[in-house]
Simulated assay, not measured.
Amino acid sequence: MVLAGSDLVARSRRRARRVSAAVDDVGGEVEFFVAAVRGIPQALRHYRKDVIRLIAEIGMGTGALAVVGGTVVIVASLTLFTGGTIAIQGYSSLGNIGIESLTGFLAAFINVRVAAPVVAGIGLSATIGAGSTAQLGAMRISEEIDALETMGIRPLPYLISTRIMAGTLVVIPLYSAAMIASFYACRFATVSIYGQSGGLYDHYFRTFLQPVDILWSFFQAIAMGAAVMLVHTYYGFTASGGPDGVGRAVGRAVRASLIVVVSVTLLISLAVYGATGNFHLSS
């Protein structure tokens, strides 16, 4: 009985230590995020050229990523195929009940509110997010960040705040290309592959495409871009353990950012469309 009681106490203490460590980790992340955001004004004053350079690198890519056209082409390709999938599934499903003419409605409704933002967020996480984590992790394990501190340069504004600004700003043209690609894929699949009248498709598409939904969709994409950059820069800045540790940091960052992307989509959808839906089934 004494041994059993001591084992129970030991397990309870281990659980308490794990909970305490988890709370400390969350507190450290929040402190990092606040410091990174507070460093944005300093980055604007002193590191404008670095922000412009990072925007070019993030948008068009470097090295092997630049060969295929950078993040813009990758994210636009993802939403292109997603839009085609929506058209194929929507036309087939609506055709089962004889209303395949409403495929344009699905393109205007699902693409803007759910599909394009989520897929674009996933593309951001896998490209600019993972790249930022790897860059910062490599700088951490090679002691470049420590060298910056020795030179009197604050690493957070110089390395983190500039990347957050660049990643957030580049989302606007990037998401514009992604949205256009998804719309084009839906129309091409419906009109050119299934043979639906272009005028019929355009009528329902323009009827149900509300400009305010596009604005909210862009706001959602910008919020996801900022959140993805915050998560990935944190894991890269705190990486340890050599090249293997950097790889683990990239994996953990991608996993966390995917959760953040879906969470942002859920919260914004609840806030904007949760009460009324902002949807009118009329022309």
Rank of each mutant, 00 (worst) to 15 (best):
R113M: 02
F219A: 15
M224V: 02
A177K: 04
H203L: 12
V72G: 02
V68F: 13
P173V: 10
A130G: 14
G59S: 01
Y235A: 06
T127H: 06
D202K: 11
V112Q: 10
R11M: 09
H280Q: 13
I180M: 09
R48T: 05
F109R: 13
D244C: 05
I40P: 12
T190K: 06
G104E: 12
I214E: 04
L258E: 01
G28I: 04
V72M: 06
G28F: 06
H232Q: 07
A275E: 11
P157F: 12
V262M: 07
T62G: 03
V75M: 00
I40G: 12
G98F: 01
G95E: 10
V118C: 02
A21P: 08
A226L: 14
V67I: 06
F218N: 05
L156P: 06
G131N: 02
T62F: 01
A115W: 10
A21C: 11
S92N: 15
S6W: 15
L78T: 10
V73N: 01
R48Y: 02
V73Y: 00
T238E: 05
S92E: 13
L281K: 13
V231G: 10
A116Y: 04
A4T: 15
G104P: 15
T238R: 11
T133W: 00
L281W: 15
G5V: 06
Y204M: 07
Y234V: 08
G152E: 02
R252A: 09
Y184A: 12
Q89Y: 09
A178Q: 05
V2L: 04
I52H: 07
F219W: 08
G198S: 12
R113Y: 03
A107T: 03
L174D: 03
R11I: 08
G63V: 00
G277M: 04
T265E: 10
I97M: 14
G123Q: 00
G39R: 05
L156W: 11
L8T: 15
S217M: 05
V51A: 13
I40T: 09
G242F: 08
T82A: 07
A87Q: 14
G104Q: 14
L54R: 14
A126Q: 01
G5C: 05
I128T: 01
H203Q: 12
V67E: 02
T79A: 06
L200K: 05
Q196S: 04
E31M: 07
A76E: 00
L3W: 08
A10K: 13
L281Y: 14
G199H: 05
I145P: 07
I180R: 11
A76C: 02
P157I: 03
Q135A: 01
A181V: 11
D50W: 04
L80Y: 11
S269W: 02
V246T: 05
M60Q: 09
R15Y: 05
S20I: 05
S125Q: 03
R53K: 11
R53G: 04
T190Q: 04
A108S: 13
H46C: 06
N111S: 15
I97S: 14
G123L: 00
I145G: 09
F188D: 08
E144T: 11
P117H: 03
V231L: 12
R140Q: 14
L3F: 11
S269A: 13
G27C: 07
I145H: 11
V261R: 10
T276V: 08
A271Y: 06
V250D: 02
S20D: 04
V191M: 04
T233W: 00
G121D: 01
L267W: 06
L80E: 03
L136N: 02
S176T: 13
